[in-house]
Amino acid sequence: MTLRLIYNSLHAAGLVTSQRQFSREWLQKQPSYYSSSVSRSREPSLQVLFIIYDRIRRMALSSADDIEIPCQHRKQLRRLAVEIRNLIGQRLSPPGSSGC
């Protein structure tokens, strides 16, 4: 799971219009954070993953009355939230642990 995949998914759903907006509004970082991270092949920090996970999860679980998001995009957001949650879990698990 990369920031690029997350950005592309949100962009395809019409939830972000630019990389700068994604950095500021979704990642709570400076406008150039996304483009800089991608160009340097940096993985997102746990802090960034928690921030984006929380926002995507909330949108995916919100009722249709709260936010105008088509059903297909809600399903996509739920899948994306699960993938990010799994990535967070992998990062928090010590190397060599079996998860037990």
Results as ranks from 00 to 15, higher is better:
P70E: 04
D54L: 13
S32T: 13
Q72F: 08
K75M: 02
G89H: 01
L3V: 04
L15Q: 04
R40Y: 14
L92C: 05
E25Q: 02
Q72E: 11
Y34V: 09
A64T: 12
W26A: 10
P94A: 00
Y53K: 07
A64K: 10
Q19W: 10
H73L: 02
D65G: 03
G99M: 07
S32K: 10
A60F: 14
S41N: 15
D54V: 11
S37P: 08
A12G: 13
Y7V: 09
V48G: 03
L77F: 13
W26V: 06
Q19L: 05
I69Y: 08
L87W: 03
A64L: 10
Q72K: 01
L10W: 12
Q72G: 05
R85A: 05
M1L: 02
D65R: 02
S37W: 03
L27Y: 06
R78L: 13
L49N: 03
S45I: 06
Y53T: 03
A12Q: 15
L3C: 07
S32C: 13
S35D: 04
C71A: 10
S98A: 09
I52M: 06
E83A: 14
S37C: 09
P94Q: 03
T17H: 00
Q28V: 15
I69T: 12
T17D: 07
R78F: 11
R85T: 01
I67E: 01
G96H: 03
Q72W: 09
S63Y: 08
I56S: 13
L80W: 04
P70T: 03
S62W: 04
F22Q: 02
S36I: 11
P31G: 12
M1A: 01
H73P: 10
I52N: 11
A81D: 01
D65H: 07
S36K: 15
S93K: 05
L46V: 09
I6C: 15
Q28S: 14
Q47R: 02
M1C: 00
S18V: 07
R24T: 14
R4G: 10
A64F: 09
E83H: 14
V16F: 07
R57K: 06
L27E: 11
N8I: 08
A13Q: 08
S97D: 07
Y34A: 11
E25K: 07
I52G: 09
R85H: 07
C100T: 09
L77H: 08
Y53H: 11
R55W: 08
Q30I: 14
V16R: 00
P95A: 11
R79L: 01
Y33K: 05
L92A: 04
L80H: 09
L15E: 06
V16S: 05
S23D: 05
G14S: 12
T17Y: 00
G99R: 07
M1P: 10
